[in-house]
Design a protein around this nucleic acid. Sequence first.
DNA 1: GTGAAAGCGCTAACAC
DNA 2: GTGTTAGCGCTTTCAC
Lengths: 349, 349
Amino acid sequence: MASVTIMDVARHAGVSKKTVSRVINNEANVKDEMREKVNRAIQELGFKRNPLGMALAKNRSLFIALLSDNSSPGYLMNLQKGILQGCSEEQMGLFLYDCDYRSPTLVQEVEAYIDNTLVDGLILRPPMCDKLELLEMLDRKNVAYIRIGPKDLNRGESLGFNSAKASYDITHYLLKLEHRHIGFILGHPEQRSSQLGEEGFRKAYKEAGLKVNEALIAQGYYTYQSGMDAAATLLNNTPRPTAIFAANDEMALGVLYEVQSRNLKVPADISICGIDDIAQSTKVWPNLTTIRHPLLTIGYQAACLLIGRLKNKKTAGPARGPDGTQIFDGELVIRASTSTAPKAIEVGT
Amino acid sequence: MASVTIMDVARHAGVSKKTVSRVINNEANVKDEMREKVNRAIQELGFKRNPLGMALAKNRSLFIALLSDNSSPGYLMNLQKGILQGCSEEQMGLFLYDCDYRSPTLVQEVEAYIDNTLVDGLILRPPMCDKLELLEMLDRKNVAYIRIGPKDLNRGESLGFNSAKASYDITHYLLKLEHRHIGFILGHPEQRSSQLGEEGFRKAYKEAGLKVNEALIAQGYYTYQSGMDAAATLLNNTPRPTAIFAANDEMALGVLYEVQSRNLKVPADISICGIDDIAQSTKVWPNLTTIRHPLLTIGYQAACLLIGRLKNKKTAGPARGPDGTQIFDGELVIRASTSTAPKAIEVGT
DNA sequence: GTGAAAGCGCTAACAC
DNA sequence: GTGTTAGCGCTTTCAC
């Protein structure tokens, strides 16, 4: 392209390269008069700073990437959208990297990715954000990161969701609807949010003075298929649960499928709810009762935080500020998939 | 980082910088002996070429981006996955840019994005790939692109899906099931695929010697909501259609919702089908009969094609090869949402 | 075939 | 406050 360089601007404004550099970097110690002259030249010439030149000289690309695996696409979609919004405002690009959480060479793969793209900031979602070796590698390479997930490793900043409260709220709601046989599908056992969710579930029972039926707790993995499988197990229980609460919507959708395929009516025969409020939850019939997870906000904030930190980072050192962990609360959204428990409990098949 | 530069390698191997450069760029005119020496040094030192240095010197970043808007998330998810696979194999990063198709300043926004990231290749999906002004801007800026979509502008390479055949196949299938009142929901009127789809639909009728009932053709926009709306209209027809065929799955899901919310049974009362086979189609009950759109393959190929072209492009010029348009056929996937037409047709509400 | 020098666009360190 | 010089890591002349 007819690229206008910083040199052209300098000549046009009758100043030195460095002064122009100072102006475009918003540095102090530039006379207003000069600044204006330079800005005018930039306008007139249509100058755009070449990020590559900057990156090379500063040894910081300002590129960031979202590391994700592809389980729970609805969740990812929302988060991605929020992040992109933040990037767009900050005029930054977002790299995407799709990795397999279970890959034994995960850390090396990510490292190679960083070397290839020179990103210097990463947004990590679960389950990646809980992988200690990964975080250690990033620290070693001096790559900044924001973790999306409940803080439990004391590393970097993280933006979390209040899984315990969400779980508590849903359970409380179901108990209020007089459900006494609630099936609960846990999240991925290796993710912190799963334990927190279980705590919330139990807390609601305890406060209601009721005892949890352990037979109605099933293991899930946050995936659609695991929701289906767990539902199949739970539905074979006697008495059959009058409600099933899955730790995320992706699994709840699996439950819904399993229930409907057995010709049970939702919510007449059985209530279903999840957590997250992904787009799909309002695209199935009946719409899912859930907890709204402010993923868009979280994604947006994560992007802004990360970019802000990269832009301000003077020295390269891993000088992470005080723990900036922020926890977001969800909000109960009552839709058509839940109702009061059916009066008579039949022993179904 | 302990970054090893090309200079270090040169010293270690006892050759000049340039020779190393030749080796890592796989250029001809290097003695095998030299090449080996250099390669050994690269190994020993763990050298990785800094893409930024290259980008600056060559004025080509090799970065590519996927331009998308967020309608039809399932479609996007699949495409994205395919593209990422290709990028990963080629050791390239993928930038993501989410834009609003309807924005009046779309072209400027994309241009600013290119200036900010210096991407020199773009993958365009519909509806972006049909925007002539956008393509013109890209040509002017000498940014390569691959269009995902039916070729109709004679610009660049494109990977297309055979929408006409897909539509024909579905319609043919429904007619074979003795449906005679098929509601058809068109795609976005500004996208070429929509017209092709309509042609396929009509062709199937014609070949069967039947006449299309124009009242049963409704306008859609490829979005979930537009599918719901169109279904609402179609279901009020007398006689009510015994099947509804939507031009993509996203809309078909909207139809399914609308139908189920009216307490109609699928497929007993009404059959539903779509096109694309997005993940969601096997996550609803009943699973959707559809045409499998090889989006993963298309995305993968698009990435490989684009990257390949960038890597080989000697001179910057927009020297696009002969038209490499490739059309992929879909494949009928029969699932639970379709069955033979109900015998007696009731006039419903 | 190979190497020396110059330069991509920008910023860092140090003068003035 | 501002300008000068050197250099980020790589590639491109163009000699040899």
